[in-house]
């Protein structure tokens, strides 16, 4: 992501509000119907693609077990912990380095080099160092989501309006006052964009770590179900991760909207 929160474009003609919801429901229904019908046709074998009803029944059945919920709990807590660590580190470093031009210049090349390194490259290292411990997952999650947030904080700190900065200096605002009233509000939308991107990446890496390393969680459950050849269960667990992903996305967006109520880009979006 290069850009900051994009300003919402003026949307042309807004149709009646109920219509979208109706179309959306219809779209979802068609999707489920296809999923239900296609496995009964010769086109795709039900072994490969179990019908929607079977997958959802398996999911319902599974969600009655404690093991399922402890896997969900492990996934969510690893995600949240990793994201929190990345957030804290990225905010502290981002504001400190971003507001000192010399530091920023000195670290630029290192950041440019380290940032694109795929965190999955660290998997063998994580296995060697921590085995199937939670720390393995955290290593991958923190590495991946840290950069997303850090870069956005740097963009945000750099985006400060020079006129506002000069005004603040002219009125004799001190370093802390400037940080509080100028830097922080300017960088906040960027920071939240970073959190939104970081949260999605963190979930991907949490699941990845559980799949490949075998740390406990939904990812590991999927990998176990796969090795026992239980296709419906694999699908059911994938649906569960999808629902988790939807929850993460909507949750983060809600937070973003709430924190940035005053900010025009969100106001525009909300008005649409």
């Amino acid at each position: 992501m290069t850009a900051a929160p994009a300003t919402a474009a003026a949307s042309p003609r807004r149709p009646l509000p109920g219509r979208d919801a109706l179309l959306g429901t219809a779209g979802a229904a068609v999707f489920l119907l296809l999923w239900e019908v296609v496995p009964h046709t010769p086109a795709v074998s039900a072994d490969y693609l179990p019908p929607a009803s079977e997958v959802l029944a398996t999911l319902a059945e599974r969600s009655a077990t404690a093991a399922f919920w402890s896997a969900v709990g492990a996934t969510v807590s690893a995600w949240a912990l990793g994201l929190a660590i990345a957030f804290a580190a990225a905010v502290a470093l981002g504001f400190a380095i971003g507001s000192v031009p010399a530091l920023r210049a000195a670290t630029a090349s290192t950041v440019e080099f380290l940032r694109p390194i795929p965190s999955v490259a660290l998997i063998p290292l994580a296995i060697l160092m921590y085995g199937t411990d939670l720390r393995s997952t955290l290593l991958l999650v923190v590495y991946a989501s840290f950069w997303q947030i850090y870069i956005q904080v740097l963009y945000g700190v750099a985006d400060i309006d020079p006129v506002a900065e000069q005004t603040a200096r002219a009125y004799g605002l001190g370093r802390w006052a400037r940080l509080r009233h100028l830097v922080w509000p300017t960088a906040l939308p960027y920071l939240l964009t970073g959190v939104r991107l970081g949260a999605a990446v963190a979930l991907i890496l949490t699941i990845t770590a559980q799949l490949t390393i075998g740390t406990p969680g939904l990812g590991q459950e999927i990998s176990v179900a796969q090795s026992s050849g239980a296709a419906p269960l694999v699908y059911a667990l994938i649906v569960a991760t999808g629902l988790l992903g939807v929850a993460v996305n909507t949750g983060v967006r809600a937070v973003e909207r709430r924190v940035l109520r005053w900010h025009t880009s969100v106001r525009g979006e909300a008005a649409v």
Binding site: I204, T206, I207, L211, G219, L237, T241, G245
Partner: peptide, 8 residues
């Protein structure tokens, strides 16, 4: 579909 973590 977008929310499903691709590695699964």
């Amino acid at each position: 579909l977008r929310a499903v973590p691709p590695p699964v």
